[in-house]
Each structure stands twice: as structure tokens, then as C-alpha cells.
Design a protein around this nucleic acid. Structure first.
Lengths: 230, 230
DNA sequence: ACAAAAGTGTTAGACCTACACCCATGG
DNA sequence: CCATGGGTGTAGGTCTAACACTTTTGT
């Protein structure tokens, strides 16, 4: 039908987790091949008859045991024909988020081969994986301002200050607590529960939940989530 | 090295042009195959040893004679394994803009097979090409608000009202001329020339140029281009 | 009673929105 | 001189940014 095409399609994922004021990315240790014993992003080749998103979901499950709370396409890497020196490989990269309960990997798979790395301690990775991670971080920073995506990195019920912390950690800047709270609550997409937690000393914080239904309702009425700060 | 993968990689482009208060997309008429004589997006298979962006640039040149003034990756379509019924094909879609001088296709190629279609008169296209176009239109609308991308759809020197018109046409809403002009000029990224044009009757308009260098300088200083209107 | 973190209001200034008239040219 | 489209200013309201003290709990 066509002259043969010797290009392979892979999928890779940058999956973020957040815990104790730190942002993490999950990496796996390759078991075989030239890159054996080196850390890299989870991912692999797309199977015949398999969709792209299905492929990355499968790979994440197989290699890390993780199921994401949020997953979207990031970018497709294939301008550099030699990004994988073994063959021409085009990689469709994904961007994922998991909530903190998934941050404990020991149960899901052999802990030796999967680990969470703080974003500022990512080792040098094979291929263009460091570049992919940079792109993912940019995306995360951008999205945080105009989509209610931070909630996917928190537990279902969370104390408000954790949300503040999350924004400050990821955006790497201080944010005025009063202004942040005012603006965030003004959207009306958070539900206050009557539960409280205290983390260490100090006054306990009320727990909130994200009201996704309300958010989606608002979207239909020209509402825009926008929480940029200088 | 691996079990064989029978998936092909294609590139497709949604290229926008703007003229006389109308937004256009370029389509080509397939010459061979099942979809012969049907309009579709320009594009084709990536060659061995060819980068993705190079591939779409080549295809655009071959099929339409167009070189874009702006070109970026849009999205990679490959979740639906049967999007092309002949084989499993993953398509990396691109988003392009051309300035008005390129809108005349007759010189570049056989006019029978390439044409500009107004965005609201796109016929039903094969594969998921209509879906790709929708995504591209969303992207264009979004980008217009926070990147100075409109200039790529105008001639190098343009009268200010054309820029107003362009925003109104693409965003499909009325914008207050005074407020638009004030905000746009306040960025300081437009140069006033001492040339004027009059289109039809009325007072002639001063011509402006986009000062790309100034814009890129400003970007380094935390400047954000943002021209959203309600 | 003290330390630690949560919770809360106000004000000045910037920015956005709405709005209408005069100007330069061609016919 | 008239029709056509270009060019301009202001005032009211809204939103943003900056700022510090009180409350609740654990020790």
C-alpha cells in the first residue's frame, strides 16, 4: 500500500505527585536493553490495535501500578530523528497527576524499580526525557492558573492551607494567603465540610472538597477559573 | 529488536488565512486512493529519517505550495484505532498561519486541487479531519488572547482597524474599538509608520508594524501579552 | 501561658467597561 | 457637502494588591 515506514511510536508519561510541600515525578528503572539500570520516564511502545491513551494507561499500570487522577496529552516528540539512537521513534508524551494516596508505591510493584523523585532532583535521563519533563513542568505551572487542576494532587478532603502551599510550591513564589483564599472561595467551587484536621501544632483547619459538578455547571455559563497572581 | 508494530505516522495541517473579514482554511483534493476527489486537510506520511515538523513543512510545500508564517504542533490523533479505516494511523496535527499574500494559490500549484474554504463552510471531510479543524479553531481563539499571533495573519504593514476586525471575526464577538486600541497600543509592541491607506471611502488609516524584537525583549521582563475582552 | 498555624477585612490604586463625537478623505 | 470609515477621552465601577491582628488548638 505504501513504501514501508520504519518509524516506531512510543508513549511516555510525566506523572506528578505532591506531598509535604514537595512536587514529585515518578521514574522507573529500565530492566533490559542499552539503558538497563538507568532511570527514565515510564512508557513504551504502542501495541498494534491499541489507542495512544490506552497505551500510556497500560504502560503506567504495568510499570508503576499507578492510575492517574488526571491524564492529558502533553506533546509529541519526533523532530529529532535521533532522539532514540537505536531507531527512529516518535514519542507521544502525556502529562498526569495522582493524588497523595498513590504516592506509596511499595504495594503496587517492586519498589526497586519505581520511585518518586523531587522535581528539583531529577537525574540525567536517557533520550530527551529531561526535555519532556521541563515541558511538563511548564504545562503544570500554566494550567494551575486557569484550570482547577490542583485538586487532583490533593486528597479528596483537604485543608485550605494545603492548597495554598501547593500553589506556592509549584509556582515557586509566595502568595498572599488572604487574597488567595478570597479569590479561590469566590468561585464557589469548594465545599466546606464540618471536619477538621490539625497537622502538628496550631489551630486545626477545616477540610474542603472540590465540587466538580458545580465547576462544570459554571463552565457552561461563561465562567472562567482564573487564579493568576503576580 | 521488538515485535513488529504496524502503525503508521502521518502529519496533517490546519492552516488559517484571513482576508476581508473572513477566516479561511486551506484544503486539498486527494488525487488517489479511496478518498479520491474528496477535500481533506493537507498532510501525509512521515518519511524515514524525517522529523515531524520537517514532514509537515514538506507536505505543505508539495501539496499547496504554502510556507507558513507560524507553525506549531496542535495535537496527536491516535486514540481511535480506526480513524483511518485502511490501517492504523497516528496523525500529528499542526496548526499554521499564513499572511494574506499567500492566499492567492493559483501561482503555486494546480488551482483545481487546492482551495481556501471559509471556516464556516468546511465540507464534511474524511477521517477525523473535521474534529482536527475544530480543535485548531479553539486553539486559534485561545491563542489570540494571550499571544501576539494575529499579526501572522496580516501583512507586515497593516491598518489598525484590520487588526480590530481580525479579532472580532475570529472571536466572533464585537469589541469596543477604543478599548481595544488603547490596550493593544499600551503594550508598546506596535510601530506606527508614516504611511496611510484608505480602503474604500473614509479617512485613510495609518499603517502599523508589529515590533517582534520589542515583544521578545519584554517577554524576558515578565511582561504578559493579554488582550481578553468580555 | 505560650507557641504554632488558621482564619479574617479594609483601603488605595490600578484596570476595565461603557459610551459619543470630531476628523480626514473621496466622490 | 455629504458619506464613509478613522481616530480619540473620560468617568464610574470593579478588581487587585498590600497589609496585621485575632482565634483555636496542643504542649
Amino acid at each position: 500500500m505504501f513504501t514501508s515506514q520504519d518509524i516506531r511510536i512510543a508513549v511516555d508519561a510525566v506523572v506528578f505527585g505532591y506531598k509535604e510541600k514537595q512536587l514529585y515525578i515518578v521514574l522507573i528503572k529500565q530492566k533490559f536493553g542499552v539503558y538497563r539500570d538507568r532511570w527514565s520516564l515510564p512508557g513504551g511502545f504502542v501495541l498494534n490495535g491499541e489507542g495512544l491513551k490506552d497505551a500510556i494507561i497500560r504502560e503506567l499500570q504495568e510499570e508503576t501500578g499507578i492510575t492517574t487522577s488526571y491524564l492529558e496529552q502533553l506533546y509529541t516528540f519526533g523532530d529529532d530523528v535521533n532522539r532514540d539512537e537505536r531507531a527512529q521513534v516518535v514519542s507521544v508524551a502525556y502529562f498526569g497527576l495522582v493524588n497523595p494516596s498513590k504516592l506509596d508505591l511499595s504495594a503496587s510493584t517492586d519498589a526497586q524499580d519505581v520511585a518518586w523523585f523531587p522535581v528539583n532532583e531529577i537525574p540525567e535521563l536517557p533520550f530527551d526525557h529531561n526535555e519532556i519533563i521541563n515541558k511538563a513542568i511548564q504545562r503544570l505551572k500554566g494550567k494551575l492558573n486557569y484550570e482547577p487542576i490542583g485538586f487532583d494532587l490533593l486528597d479528596e478532603k483537604f485543608p485550605f492551607p494545603s492548597l495554598e502551599q501547593l500553589y506556592q510550591t509549584i509556582l515557586d513564589k509566595e502568595i498572599d494567603r488572604r487574597n488567595f483564599r478570597k479569590k479561590m472561595l469566590s468561585f464557589g467551587i469548594l465545599n466546606e465540610t464540618d471536619e477538621k484536621v490539625s497537622i502538628g501544632g496550631g489551630r486545626p483547619a477545616k477540610l474542603y472538597t472540590f465540587n466538580k459538578e458545580k465547576y462544570e455547571e459554571l463552565l457552561k455559563e461563561k465562567f472562567v477559573f482564573d487564579i493568576k497572581f503576580v
